[in-house]
Design a protein around this nucleic acid. Sequence first.
DNA 1: TAACATTACGTTAGCCGTAACGATA
DNA 2: TATCGTTACGGCTAACGTAATGTTA
Lengths: 285, 285
Amino acid sequence: MIDIHLLEQFHAFAEYGTLSEAAEKLHTSQPALTRSMKKLEGELGVDLFIRSKNQLRLNETGLHAARYAEDVLKADSDFESKVKAYDRSLHTISIGFCAPVPQTVLTPLLNTIFEGMTISADMTDDSDFVNRLKTHEYHLAVLHDDPEDEDIYVKKCGHEDLFISLMPGDPLAFYPEVHLSDLDGKTILLLTRIGFWINFHNNKTPNANYLLQIDMDSFMELSQNSNYPSFSSSYYMSRGIVNKGKITIPIVDPECHTDYYLACLASERERYKMLFERVNDKTIM
Amino acid sequence: MIDIHLLEQFHAFAEYGTLSEAAEKLHTSQPALTRSMKKLEGELGVDLFIRSKNQLRLNETGLHAARYAEDVLKADSDFESKVKAYDRSLHTISIGFCAPVPQTVLTPLLNTIFEGMTISADMTDDSDFVNRLKTHEYHLAVLHDDPEDEDIYVKKCGHEDLFISLMPGDPLAFYPEVHLSDLDGKTILLLTRIGFWINFHNNKTPNANYLLQIDMDSFMELSQNSNYPSFSSSYYMSRGIVNKGKITIPIVDPECHTDYYLACLASERERYKMLFERVNDKTIM
DNA sequence: TAACATTACGTTAGCCGTAACGATA
DNA sequence: TATCGTTACGGCTAACGTAATGTTA
């Protein structure tokens, strides 16, 4: 078996053209490379170089060998990354959230139940979540509707209602409830990472002007201290987290009331048993 | 970069199940393997084993890693064989002969012109020789007819006529010449490795009983000291190599008179220039 | 008690870097 | 003269094998 270290040095020489430059790049000495190259030739029983008195260059076999060496080096580095990736996959649980509130609620629970594991959370629209479970991109997912797929095990884990916070002077603030269509045309504060909620932009409020906030703190700050309307939800309301001095009104449209469903592959149900036992339809609310 | 030597040891453990057996197979000591396995885990930063007090076995990651390791080991051993094969291909000239006499005549010439190279000679029916030149299986070929292919460079290099040696008492021995069909039904001495000549068995002498001799010396011995007819050729006749006490008669059939053609890929003509210059239509005769 | 993995320890083979040398452009 | 590859030499590390230890079936 040819030492991978020799191939590394050989490949460096092939790349840089002189032993001195290769030595510098490899943080070693010129004599070390001279010896290694001779050793490589010795172990192969094949000449790889054309040696002039003060010049070394690859012969025809050497040129080919340099290409072959790359394959071996790639295989070796692939080994390392594949093993590490596999190990990591065993120690991480990947979960897709369709909205921020389920993540807020479930993350502490996940950390408790799967202690020592890394929880890798993703937040985005959930239209592709069933596929991502099936391709093992996600181990778990929280969706906003029941996928009704026999390969997927599902348990309802709560619900959420959307509200809008308005300035007391806002004409809408006098109504007991509003429709999304009432908000069209307004400038509204919105967080960027809100999962599936992002969808009602396109449908009911095509002319609304959203002030997108990446950061939760900035969003809260602006909600409190600006005149712009901003969204809130039953989760925050029930915990007394409100925008002082603003009127918060429920939104009646059905897409602003959603249930949440925790899901995994039916075949992996046993592995996440503990989690499903600790979750019920009032976990997120 | 993971040392290939560690992977070799790891793979042996995966194969044999215990460090002791792996150590024995690798001609090393148990402690050496213990240390290597720990080193491998250390370099990867990943656990590969489940350790009981006196049992070591692969964990899930280890099982995968063992498979990945095989790929690396294969890549490394492929490197070695590919480099050696390429080097050998540079130092060997592969030539296909359609008959023994061209080989006898050309081998000394090849050794002289391509001194230091290995001549790898093959002898068989030449119906596939053009393909073998095109696929680089052969660098050179001697055929018994002109391939008339524009990719192939050809020069006529001699000819050969077949004779038959008979006992003086044989009825055929009174004729000045014979036909192959006259020989059908007889028992005849024949060498096995005779290239394209083998073909006339099937056509003109389907009922002849051939005593196949693998060894040239045995063939000569039997030719001299038995009553069986045997083949000879113009090459041996013109050099006075005859079967004493036998009558040697020419065979008239056209397939017993052949020209020989030396060929190489037109694109490689320059490489074999020296050889073609030294060959003419009287080289083999 | 036999087989196994691990730890301890003393030895040594092999690799490294510095230095010196010879050749070249 | 600066750069390059090779050789020589002395030092040191890292890997080895033997022996000892502890555990299990």
